[in-house]
């Protein structure tokens, strides 16, 4: 579903991503973990056609990122870290517009929006603007709009940040259900490692723009003699910090 080779991105002097190889199969739920500034969002923005890689190649959802970005866009959903709604526009209108941009007519779009909002436990928000909503409600809306067109592959950038435990559990439940029902593939970032442990088939850990560990949560834990993913995370990231401390 995703095959990337040697992806890099530099912003002026900053080497945000320094050569990443990725393979994600259809139906997998893959966690992309790493400290702040490691390059997670930058990688996601490259894979979702929003940012041109400095070098490297990738096929995403069966289409070449460079040769056919439109095909990639048709098949993927993206929930950005920073949200997707302006605070002053009625939510229902934004959702209907978004659905129509994927080719649904007005009626189909409305119907789809109503079903999806119910599935994500967000009834009666259509007339409201996000300015009047709680942080968690807003986040669920961001996720709703990414799922609107039933993508094959969903990119989630810190989807659960700011959600209460109940909503988080609901979201994971929803993601699992979509995987079972539609074979959805999910590539997500999170800073909640126990969550990655519970939800993801496989995790990748990125640090300073490079993948530093990769495997199923259990593999990684036994490989590092760690009890939790948190311990693995601490063992593989911030190596420089530790080296500086012991030197």
């Amino acid at each position: 579903m995703i095959h990337a080779r040697g992806l890099t991105k530099t912003f002026g002097p900053v080497e945000a991503v320094r050569g990443i190889d990725l393979d994600v199969s259809a139906g997998e739920i893959v966690g992309f973990l790493g400290p702040n500034g490691a390059g997670k969002t930058t990688t996601l923005r490259m894979l979702t056609t929003l940012l041109r890689p400095t070098s490297g190649t990738a096929t995403v959802a069966g289409a070449d990122l460079f040769a056919d970005p439109t095909a990639v866009r048709r098949r993927i959903g993206y929930v950005a870290q920073g949200g997707a709604f302006a605070p002053f526009s009625p939510v229902g209108e934004e959702l209907v517009l978004q659905a129509r941009l994927y080719g649904l007519n007005r009626e189909q779009a409305r119907e789809r929006v109503t079903t999806l909002l119910a599935e994500l436990d967000l009834p009666e928000v259509e007339e409201r603007t996000t300015a009047t909503m709680s942080g968690g409600q807003k986040r669920r809306l961001d996720i709703a709009i990414g799922l609107l067109h039933r993508p094959e592959l969903l990119f989630l950038d810190e989807p659960t940040t700011g959600l209460d435990p109940q909503s988080r559990a609901n979201l994971w439940e929803h993601v699992r259900r979509l995987r079972e029902r539609d074979g959805l593939t999910v590539f997500l970032t999170t800073h909640y490692l126990e969550e990655a442990d519970a939800l993801c088939d496989r995790v990748l850990i990125i640090d300073h723009g490079r993948i530093v560990a990769e495997g199923t949560p259990d593999e990684l834990k036994s490989e590092h003699g760690a009890r939790t993913l948190d311990d693995v995370f601490l063992a593989v990231t911030g190596r420089e910090l530790r080296e500086a401390a012991t030197a």
């Binding site: 979702t48 056609t49 929003l50 439109t70 095909a71 866009r73 048709r74 993927i76 959903g77 993206y78 950005a80 920073g82 949200g83 997707a84 709604f85 302006a86 605070p87 526009s89 934004e94 978004q98 941009l101 994927y102 709009i145």
Partner: peptide
């Protein structure tokens, strides 16, 4: 400017619309 700040523009740019 606002659409860009609030992520609306990015959301539109990941759609297949030309």
């Amino acid at each position: 400017v606002f659409d860009q700040r609030f992520g609306v523009l990015e959301r539109l740019r990941v759609t297949p619309v030309s």
